[in-house]
């Protein structure tokens, strides 16, 4: 009997698709029930979105002004209370889930399974270590709740079609006031979201400047793709941090990934290994990116990209 509780991720009243990916992972353990909890100052609209995910049994809302921003030390005590009666508590391995779920695990006194990429049984999972250079099989003790983060790139999102019941819960937990939200400086863009886009065009250090990076944006717009970047491009200030792809950035699985002027360091490759088709454009024919690219083109990106944009 597995009963799974999934912690919903949301921002500005919108449910993040990472939540529906956690549902897919929960289905892989053949859970008897899958519930989603929405903690927010105004959870109703988000709960309505969660209730539509196929296969969800129940959506629990916890409305509290203290939940207006996702502060891990505020949310965790509430989730730990709600975890009673569940065999599993899942969250996405996004920055939201990575920040929060270890706190839940610590309150429950259990180890956490990070980045679940495959399920071998209700307590046995596969997860990557060493920047994805080894995959380990781990077993969590069966006598305690399993707390895990779900590697979103490994699991497609479960679609709509459900009509789960929505239940308001009140949680009796003392919430700390020692942590205060100040601001969120959010990259605003009309482009597809990097984590869920089906096509991603990424640029690296080779772009050389923020101005020159505009040819990556322009190609992405022509293709209807999201824009990503290597760490070197982010460090150099060509693009904001939320575009970084890799071990310490976003792990993504688009149908098409284009690496342009990116050498292919292992830390970058970790982030794109699950992509359907990888295209690499690099002037160095020996660049490691070509070892994993489905299609490689050697040449100067400043010549190739405008040509490519015209040809599409």
């Amino acid at each position: 009997m597995s009963k799974v509780l999934i912690v919903a991720e949301h921002l500005n009243g919108q449910l993040n698709s990472a939540t529906a990916r956690c549902v897919t992972c929960a289905k892989a353990i053949h859970a008897d029930s899958i519930d989603i909890v929405v903690l927010s100052d105004a959870p109703d609209a988000i709960a309505a979105q969660a209730a539509q995910i196929a296969g969800v049994s129940k959506v629990i809302t916890v409305a509290n002004a203290a939940n207006a921003h996702a502060l891990a030390q505020v949310l965790a005590p509430q989730i730990a209370k709600l975890a009673a009666g569940y065999t599993h508590v899942f969250g996405p391995s996004t920055t939201f889930g990575k920040d929060l779920m270890p706190c839940v695990a610590a309150l429950l006194g259990v180890a956490q399974v990070s980045d679940v990429m495959a399920v071998d049984g209700p307590h046995t999972f596969k997860r990557p270590i060493y920047a994805g250079n080894a995959i380990i099989t781990v077993t969590a003790p069966a006598e305690h709740a399993v707390v895990a983060t779900v590697r979103t790139a490994s699991w497609p999102a479960t679609g709509a079609g459900g009509s789960a019941s929505i239940e308001a819960a009140s949680v009796d937990a003392t919430l700390p006031t020692h942590t205060r939200f100040v601001t969120l400086q959010q990259g605003k863009s009309d482009r597809p979201d990097l984590q869920s886009a089906s096509k991603v065009v990424s640029g690296g250090r080779a772009l050389g400047s923020a101005d020159a990076f505009s040819i990556i944006y322009s190609l992405a717009d022509k293709m209807g793709a999201a824009v990503g970047a290597s760490r070197a491009a982010v460090d150099a200030g060509y693009v904001p941090n939320e575009l970084q792809v890799g071990q310490t950035g976003k792990i993504i699985a688009p149908e098409l990934y284009m690496a342009i002027g990116i050498s292919g360091a292992i830390q970058h490759l970790t982030g794109i290994k699950d992509a359907g088709t990888i295209v690499a454009i690099n002037k160095d024919g020996d660049a490691p990116i070509f070892e994993i690219a489905d299609f490689g083109l050697v040449g100067d990106l400043f010549q190739i990209i405008p040509e490519l944009e015209k040809a599409l």
């Binding site: 250079n133 380990i136 690219a293 050697v298």
Partner: peptide, 30 residues
């Protein structure tokens, strides 16, 4: 209350693809 690691495996390998000679070939492949 810890996890037990029972097995280590190398990651699934992506096979090396093909090199295309120019933009036209890339576009037709895609």
């Amino acid at each position: 209350d810890l996890l037990t690691t029972t097995h280590y495996a190398p990651p699934p390998k992506r096979s090396k693809g093909v090199m295309v000679k120019d933009v036209a070939e890339l576009v037709s492949a895609l």
